[in-house]
């Protein structure tokens, strides 16, 4: 057992003692009931379980939760799909996903949303040239599996957000 604290979507949790091999996914889903973060493969292959880790240096990255012990996130600040919208106001990316019919069953959506959001924030810090945009999106999303839509609409949705504000995301 290890003493564990974490900040999720701005809210502090813990300290609590956790089993060392409890996955972060099960901490979220079984301990907290936060089932917006999905369980797909348990092997780090589909990334439907990915969440956002906000690093102290102001950068962010995604992380799978099914193959990482919860205790490895001790002291970190993370964001999950439940934390994107502010009240009833969805983020631009959430709206774009809906308007583009980016998902069908929606089970992979949390992972794509987190990955897309991290990409947007990364491009705000370090924009890419317009010519590199499609490749940049493709690389960013390629770790995520979607079995319904064939990925195209996710890509279109992310791209639409970027192209709507080129001065913000593009060099």
């Amino acid at each position: 057992m290890t003493r564990f604290s974490i900040t999720i979507n701005g809210e502090a949790h813990g300290p609590v003692d956790l089993r060392d091999d409890l996955s972060m996914n099960d901490y979220l889903r079984e301990h907290l009931g936060m089932t917006g973060t999905k369980f797909g493969c348990g092997a780090g292959q589909c990334l439907s379980c990915a969440i956002i880790v906000d690093e102290p240096d102001g950068t962010s990255r995604t992380s799978p939760t099914c193959i990482v012990p919860a205790v490895n996130f001790d002291g970190m600040a993370i964001r999950t799909v439940e934390g994107h919208a502010k009240g009833d106001e969805l983020t631009t990316l959430q709206k774009a996903f809906i308007e583009h019919f980016a998902f069908q069953c929606g089970y992979c959506t949390a992972g794509f949303l987190n990955e897309g959001q991290v990409l947007l924030e990364r491009l705000e810090r370090s924009p890419v040239a317009r010519a590199e945009l499609e490749t940049t999106i493709a690389e960013a999303l390629d770790g995520h599996l979607c079995r319904c839509t064939g990925y195209i609409k996710y890509h279109e949705a992310v791209r639409s957000v970027i192209l709507a504000e080129p001065q913000r995301y593009l060099a």
């Binding site: 091999d21 996955s23 348990g42 092997a43 780090g44 990255r61 995604t62 992380s63 799978p64 099914c66 193959i67 990482v68 012990p69 490895n72 990955e115 991290v118 990409l119 990364r122 690389e139 960013a140 999303l141 390629d142 770790g143």
Partner: peptide, 17 residues
């Protein structure tokens, strides 16, 4: 940039996954 090794490969083996 989006798929870093240590994101999945932590400091020790994780046998459940």
């Amino acid at each position: 940039d989006s798929l870093r090794c240590p994101t999945c490969h932590q400091d020790r083996n994780y046998d459940p996954g």
